[in-house]
Amino acid sequence: MAESVDTDAELMMRVRDGDREAFEELVMRYQQPVLNFISRTLRDETEAEDVAQHTFVQVWKSAHRYQVTARFTTWLFTIARNLCLNEIRRRSRHPADSLEATEGDESEGPSRPLADPGAFLASDHLASSELVQKVDEAIGALPENQRTALLLCREEELSYEEIGRILGTSLSATKSLIFRARETLKQRIKPYLKTGEWT
């Protein structure tokens, strides 16, 4: 990971000097995680593509402001999160735009559930795709800051300090957000693990 961080910083230094190849290398490296993160935050794939694209445009545009002291991913996901918040604010100003997406989420669930046959103690009881769908729904129902904290912790393996920096919260507040998000997910899963049925 440390090696990757150094390389990211080196690439960003080159991007700062207008090196297009270095920028493409960074985009190739982070396009999928950024797109996944934004898609899970906004719950809309089409908008996620636009916001992800805009995120990298911002990276190029703001490259001169990048400080090597900050880890690149922290900076990148801060940009992505800010753009997501803008999009969420825009939706709240135009509720009709997001109504369709919300209804779609509720009725259809994830469009491409990728079952993970990983071993866990209750695997005999759980249909993996159903579990994924329920977890996805539970994540969708979380407040934005809890959802972001949980996703960054899981998907990007960022430290609590880095997540706090992205969210603009203290370390204890970040831990609290993640704890509450995890508790919500556990509560959602608990009944099924007991009865084998989703309530």
């Binding site: 794939e45 996620a48 593509e49 491409r112 579990l131 994924v132 995890r182 556990k186 693990l193």
Partner: peptide, 15 residues
């Protein structure tokens, strides 16, 4: 619960 949630998170569909 944690392992089930973790499995659910790991299985979240990628875009």
């Amino acid at each position: 619960q944690v392992l089930a949630a973790s499995q659910g998170l790991a299985g979240l569909p990628g875009v």
